[in-house]
Structure formats: structure tokens, C-alpha cells
């Protein structure tokens, strides 16, 4: 097992998450794709930590998880607040800031 495999997996997950962000319209599902990307990043960090034989990668992954949790909290409450006004979780509905 060499690190490249894990990193390929991480890259693949990240790409799927990025594509999902572009393809899905539901705000919550888009958010889930963001979480997917963050997780892919965490996997890469853990792999690096094992690669170098130091725990720094794991510490960074830890902090990423903390920050992701905060982000989810605030992001979801925003979505809830927006939903209350619009009755709709479609991201494409807010497109007025255009040319």
C-alpha cells in the first residue's frame, strides 16, 4: 500500500464533491457536497501524517473537523432563515444579482 492510492481516493472524492456542487440545485445537498470535499481533504491529511511519520497532519484534520462543524451550524441556520422567506430551498431562485 503506498500513499498514492489513498491520495487518489481523496482526489476522486474531492472531484465528485466539486461536481456535485455544480450539478445539484437544492441548497442542503450542495452543502453536503461541501462536506464531502472537506472529508476528502481530511483523508489526504491523515495520509500525509502517516507518510511523514508525524502527527501534524492529524492535528490539522482535527481542526478541519471543528471548523467544518461550525460552518455546518451557521450555514444550515442561514438556509433555514432563507427558507422561511422563500418557502423554497432552490439555489437558482436567487439570481437577481445579474447583468
Amino acid at each position: 500500500m503506498n500513499p498514492a492510492h489513498y491520495l487518489y481516493l481523496s482526489a476522486l472524492l474531492f472531484t465528485i464533491g466539486a461536481a456535485g456542487m455544480l450539478l445539484r440545485r437544492n441548497a442542503i445537498v450542495m452543502f453536503m457536497c461541501v462536506e464531502l470535499m472537506l472529508n476528502a481533504g481530511n483523508l489526504a491529511f491523515v495520509t500525509f501524517a502517516r507518510m511523514h511519520g508525524q502527527l501534524d497532519g492529524q492535528a490539522v484534520a482535527f481542526f478541519t473537523m471543528v471548523v467544518a462543524a461550525c460552518e455546518v451550524v451557521v450555514g444550515l441556520s442561514i438556509i433555514v432563515a432563507i427558507f422561511r422567506t422563500r418557502r423554497n430551498a432552490d439555489v437558482d431562485e436567487s439570481h437577481l444579482l445579474r447583468h
Partner: peptide, 17 residues
Amino acid sequence: LLIAGIGAGVTGGFVGL
């Protein structure tokens, strides 16, 4: 691109924890 980059960059093995 990512996979190409990873393939070009990662050369060592695991040191182990």
C-alpha cells in the same frame, strides 16, 4: 489534473506512525 499532480509529486512510501 489532481491525479496527475499527485502521481508526479508523491514518490516516497509510508514512514508509519
